[in-house]
Structure formats: structure tokens, C-alpha cells
Amino acid sequence: MKKLSEFKLGNLKKINTESISKYMCLISVTLVVLIFFVINPKFLSLYSIQNMLLEMAPLLLLAGGITFVLFTGGIDLSAGAVASCTCVLTGLYIDNIGGWIVPLMIVLGVVIGLINGFLITAFKLPSFIVTLCATSIWKCIALISSGGGSKIIPLDKRYLVNWASAPLLGIPVMLWMTLAIIGLLYFIQRNTTVSKSILAVGANARAARMAGTNTVKAQITAMTICSVCSALAGVLYAFKMKSSVPNIGDPLGLMAIAAVALGGTSLAGGKGSVLNTIAGVATIIAVTSGMNIINVHALWKDIVIGVILIIAVFINSDKTGKDVIIK
């Protein structure tokens, strides 16, 4: 009898700690919003909310893509650079090509993802080094093609991009599109064979391999999903800023990874959900916009995001495997 009661107590404890980390993202976003609202009620004004929702759209896309790479236990540091690159290309060529630039950028994203995935799986390189190199390459291409500065989309072509920022039922069209894509990602996560392999590779690559999963396909797919999302995020930035900005992506990679980590996705791979990423992104956007509203200098942003990342990663890290060597 005694054993039984002990067993139950143990179970109860586990459920508690686990549910905390599960709902952490929701708790944190409410907390952040509340704090800023108390300090300055303007934080929840219509204008401010509209603005935040608009800000959220591209970052949400980036973070949604990165979530899949983190599922595999890898990382994509190049997401921001890819976004810069497509932002520049969209801004530069939308007046010539028109709306067709969007599918073209998606194709570019696929190509980038395939290259990253190929290098990681074929040569067995760590993802962070491959994507670090990719960062330097795509950043360069962004700088080279833009000539180093921002360029505004000409006024007579603005109709091509304006619709995306316009509100539909109170929410920007851009965010509707992003939410649709997140829905698609959620479907992929829940209902496809490849996502099962992706999670298995992240949870235990060796066991996943021995069980006969196609680890190569899993890793390449994850990298590709991420790059496509990053490419689309770049397009959205061009639409939002109405110009091509070659350094737009520089801080984004870190923000996106911090957002995903806040959403409870482990950097070690194997667990998490795209839906939680939404709350993570909301938290990050609330923090950055909130700091703006309560007049904290914008220069603090890097510091705050860095600290958030460390805390979020720590909370979600697996603390049981003390014997595992971490490099």
C-alpha cells in the first residue's frame, strides 16, 4: 500500500513541474503585458496593439521556422541573414516583377534550406557552423545587391505592398497570412511522417537512426522549412517597411531563437510545439514595444533579449543528464 501512495505522489510532482514549463509562455506573456500596462496604460491603446500585431507577423514566421530546426536539436543562425537577403531582393525587384517576387523568394528559401541541409547531412558538419557560414554569405549578397544602403519602393508601386499592412477585422492582413502559415506548420508537426522523424532525431539521434528513420530527410526538411519561413519573413519586412533594408535581419536571429526558447521548445531538441512559439513571439514583441513605450533607451534591447534567451534556455534544458558532456 505504501508503495502505491509513493508512486502517486511522485507522479503528481512530475505533472506539476511539467505543466509549469508548459504554461510558462502563457504566464510570461500575461505578466509582461500586465507590467507594462501598469507602468504606462498607453501600452494597451488601439494604436499600440495594432503596431505590435504588425511587428509580430514577420518575427512569428521566422520563429515558426526555427522551431522545426530546434526540434532536430540543430540550430539555424542564418535565418536573420536570409530574411535580410530576401527583404533586399523584394524591395529592389518588386517594381519590375510585381507580385511574382513572392513565389520566387520562396524558391530561393527552398534552395538555401536544401544547401544547408545537404552540407549538414552529407559532410556531417555541425549545423551552427554551416549556418554561421551561410550567415556571412547571405549577408554579403544582401549588401552587394543593395549597394550597402536602404532603398525605398517607389511611390507609384506602393499599391503592391500597402495591402499587407492594412487591417482586416482589426488584424493586419500580414498577420492573418502568418497565422495561416503557422496553422500549416502545426498541421505538419502533428500529422506528417517527416515531423515524427524530425522530433525523433532531436530526441535521440542514435536511437532514431537505429529505428530506421530517414534522418537525412528529416534534417534537410527541417532546414528547408526554416529557410522558406525566413525568406517569407524577409518579404514581409519589405512589405512592412516599404523598402529594402540590408541589415534588417541582424538582430532577428537572436530574437527568434529567444522567442522559440521562451515557448518551451528545448534547444537540445525533441520537444516543443509551434503553437507555443506564438506566445514566445508575443512576449518578445511585448517586451521590445513596451520598453519603447516606457521610454527605455532602444540600446537596451540587445541586453534584454540576451538575458531572456539565457533564462529561457536554462528553464527548458534537461537537467537530469548530468553525465552528458556539453561542449
Binding site: 537572436l254 529567444a258 540600446l299 540576451g306 556539453i326
Partner: peptide, 29 residues
């Protein structure tokens, strides 16, 4: 932080890089 929190070095140094850059900019505003 790397050895005590047992977080991979690339991610902890990535975050620290952002923090220390931020502090650097703050020194001269």
C-alpha cells in the same frame, strides 16, 4: 554560465555577445 547551467557554449556565448555589445553601445550612447 556554460558549465553551471549546462547550456551549449555556442548558444550561451551568442546570447552573451548580444548582451555585451548592448552594454558597449550604452557606454557611449
Amino acid at each position: 554560465l556554460h558549465v553551471k547551467l549546462r547550456i551549449a557554449s555556442f548558444i550561451i556565448s551568442y546570447a552573451m555577445g548580444s548582451i555585451i555589445t548592448g552594454i558597449g553601445v550604452l557606454t557611449y550612447k
